[in-house]
């Protein structure tokens, strides 16, 4: 199991999930320069939304048939929360000092997390999530879980869809314009409020997909899973160049692969045998972030933003 191709594949799966969440961060940041700290919780509520749908469906229903419904349920929850957060928490703060929306985001993140903890039945403990099946497929020496196939497929579909949307649709172009310069975009007749809402909605949608994928992958979801995942995803967004949607996905993949490889191989480095393993994976992820920020502050695909006078 510890072969390099296997680790790369593991990293790819993990990274796809980070990338999906990171898209939400990067789109919102690209347009309103806001770190939506609550995005990790939006991801988490998406997973709980999907679980709720599953619990409402009749017992013994085929998971493959239920999956689309779960995705829709999760997406509705996540998108509603994301859009609601924008409308009622962030929008009134536009033009406020830079720290104000950040602190609001932290508050929102805590409130969402605790709301699930307190009011979702049984959420004090980890909740079991339905599984796609336990028998892995084998591709040469690589074992691939079914849920990982779902994850990669979802990531590819989402990315292609998003790229097409941003490139070709009117709204997508308006989005790019707003990201470039909100004021001018507004003068050009673009309803920037609508664009911002759409950015939040897309972020929520992708987070919900990632939430379902997380549940399938790990078999359990918890009320506080959003914090770590959000932190990683934001790291991925910064790694890839914040504001760039392709960068977010690339950053996610790089981060996922780096984490998988660090878990497996760091311990083999002489003198560091105690610093490998799952426990240290997050540490290496952040070390990677700091190194990237030192070497290439704008991220892998980011463009250097000229200092504004």
């Amino acid at each position: 199991m510890h072969t390099l191709p296997q680790q790369l594949a593991n990293g790819l799966f993990l990274g796809s999930m980070y990338g999906l969440i990171a898209i939400g961060y990067t789109m919102v940041y690209g347009i309103v320069q806001l770190i939506n700290f609550a995005h990790g919780e939006i991801f988490m509520t998406g997973a709980f939304g999907a679980l709720t749908v599953w619990n409402c469906l009749p017992d013994g229903m085929n998971i493959w048939a239920a999956l689309p419904l779960m995705l829709i349920g999760g997406a509705i929850v996540s998108v509603l929360i994301a859009v609601g957060a924008e409308r009622f928490a962030y929008r009134p703060l536009r033009g406020a000092p830079r720290l104000a929306p950040l602190i609001t985001a932290i508050g929102l993140s805590l409130a969402l997390q605790q709301a699930i903890f307190v009011w979702y039945p049984g959420a004090d403990n980890a909740k079991d999530f339905p599984q796609l099946g336990t028998h892995p497929y084998h591709l040469g020496s690589i074992a691939i879980q079914r849920n990982d196939i779902f994850l990669v497929a979802a990531a590819v579909v989402c990315m292609v869809g998003l790229a097409a949307f941003v490139r070709t649709s009117r709204t997508g172009r308006a989005m790019q314009a707003t990201a470039q310069d909100p004021d001018t975009a507004q003068l050009m007749g673009i309803d920037t409020n609508r664009i911002i809402v759409i950015a939040f909605a897309i972020g929520g949608l992708f987070a919900a997909v990632a939430g379902v994928a997380f549940g399938l992958k790990y078999g359990q979801i918890t009320y506080n899973m959003g914090f770590q995942a959000g932190l990683k995803a934001f790291t991925a967004a910064v790694l890839g160049g914040i504001g760039n949607i392709y960068g977010a996905m690339l950053g996610g993949l790089v981060l996922g692969i780096a984490e998988a490889c660090a878990t497996a191989y760091i311990a083999n480095i002489p003198g560091m045998h105690q610093l490998g393993g799952q426990g240290w994976a997050n540490v290496w992820a952040f070390v990677l972030l700091i190194v990237v920020l030192l070497v290439r502050p704008q991220g892998l695909l980011g463009e250097r933003v000229a200092d504004r006078a």
């Binding site: 104000a100 805590l110 969402l112």
Partner: peptide, 16 residues
């Protein structure tokens, strides 16, 4: 903690 989170949001909104 829920009350704490909501308080943060409200403070930022009404008395930053």
């Amino acid at each position: 903690l829920f009350a704490f989170g909501v308080t943060l949001i409200l403070i930022m909104r009404f008395r930053p």
